[in-house]
Design a protein around this nucleic acid. Sequence first.
DNA 1: GCCATGCGCAACCTCCTGGTTGCGTCTGTG
DNA 2: CACAGACGCAACCAGGAGGTTGCGCATGGC
Lengths: 113, 113
Amino acid sequence: MSRRRTGAAEKLVGAAPLFAALGDETRLSVIARLCTGGPQSIVRLTSGAKVSRQAVTKHLQALADAGIVRSRREGRERIWEVRTSRLAEARGWLDQISSQWDEALDRLRALVE
Amino acid sequence: MSRRRTGAAEKLVGAAPLFAALGDETRLSVIARLCTGGPQSIVRLTSGAKVSRQAVTKHLQALADAGIVRSRREGRERIWEVRTSRLAEARGWLDQISSQWDEALDRLRALVE
DNA sequence: GCCATGCGCAACCTCCTGGTTGCGTCTGTG
DNA sequence: CACAGACGCAACCAGGAGGTTGCGCATGGC
């Protein structure tokens, strides 16, 4: 158990690309548009955005590299959708951090008593 | 409800600094060390790290700016600790994205039928 | 067949970020 | 008081991230 916990702590750094992909305003706005409009193409995602189509393309690629979105060709369009499973993984990391921290505090309290 | 949801989607971009703070390997390793060792000083966090003390200081400041960690002076040391409440907020954003995406898919299915 | 649409690729630029080094400051201790 | 330990501040540097522009290439409709 403690071995599993230690190993997981070292693997935590592997989650950096996942969080980094979420750590950009433009990318979050793209995700928000996906969530309100459902699966859609790049041009539709770009319309009303503050950046160019190429910028949106780059951000979508970054999100895809992190496994947060996925795309499929459909005619001459490319339709993008969210992969919620990857978001669940991110939640898992956050849970792990919180629980490990709480356990560390518990160990400290046990030492004091 | 839908008004609240739409507003939240626009506010989602505000979570970018929070995720960005988590999107760095060095910072995640600092968090991991905090979680395994409990509240501790900068030098203790630096010992064994691959970067200098100043780099760790900068990362701690970045995490503090994002509200993920907090510090207090204690003698000539500065003790750092994790704020799990902020991590819970991050989880909340992830939950919101997932649920909104699922709802978007549901709306699409309803249109098809 | 022709044209508009939707993308992908590549070059280029700017600015922020992560990192280091050097030095000054405060605090506890013998 | 003198010294060492822990930290803060500032300057500096290299690399990468975000963004734009220009161009070329498929694909679908008229």
